[in-house]
């Protein structure tokens, strides 16, 4: 039984590290900031998720598992908020996504906050 849990932990942790490596490689390779956000969300979801589940299996039913779940849930709740805030800030500063057609470009630009709403 213990050996089985060890094997499962190994698989989960290696999977998490693999997803994190692919995400970090994507951060280097992809072309613009919006595309890199997808690579970053790879790290934020399955990368950290699989590693933490693997460590939960090792910890068993203890307070350590509860803390791992807390950290994981917190990351899962906050990372989309941070990504969305970053995307809106980028649009407000006229950093638009690189897309094929002009209509799509306009679609993204239409989300810009009007300059009158900023005040002075």
């Amino acid at each position: 039984m213990a050996a089985l849990i060890d094997i499962a932990s190994w698989a989960l942790i290696l999977g998490g590290v693999a997803f994190s490596l692919i995400g970090a490689y994507g951060m280097i390779k992809l072309s613009d900031v919006y595309a890199r956000m997808h690579a970053a969300s790879l790290i934020d979801t399955l990368g950290i998720g699989l590693i933490f589940i693997g460590m939960m299996l090792q910890a068993g039913f203890t307070i350590v598992t509860v803390k791992l779940v807390l950290v994981l849930v917190f990351i899962l709740f906050t990372s989309p908020v941070a990504t969305h805030a970053l995307a809106r800030a980028a649009i407000n500063e006229d950093v638009l996504p690189v897309v094929d057609t002009e209509t799509e470009r306009q679609m993204a630009a239409s989300n810009k906050t009007k300059s009158s709403e900023f005040g002075t």
Partner: peptide, 12 residues
């Protein structure tokens, strides 16, 4: 924005 994104991932 690339830097903020990278630093956020670095924190994770």
């Amino acid at each position: 924005f690339n830097r903020i994104l990278a630093v956020n991932s670095f924190g994770t």
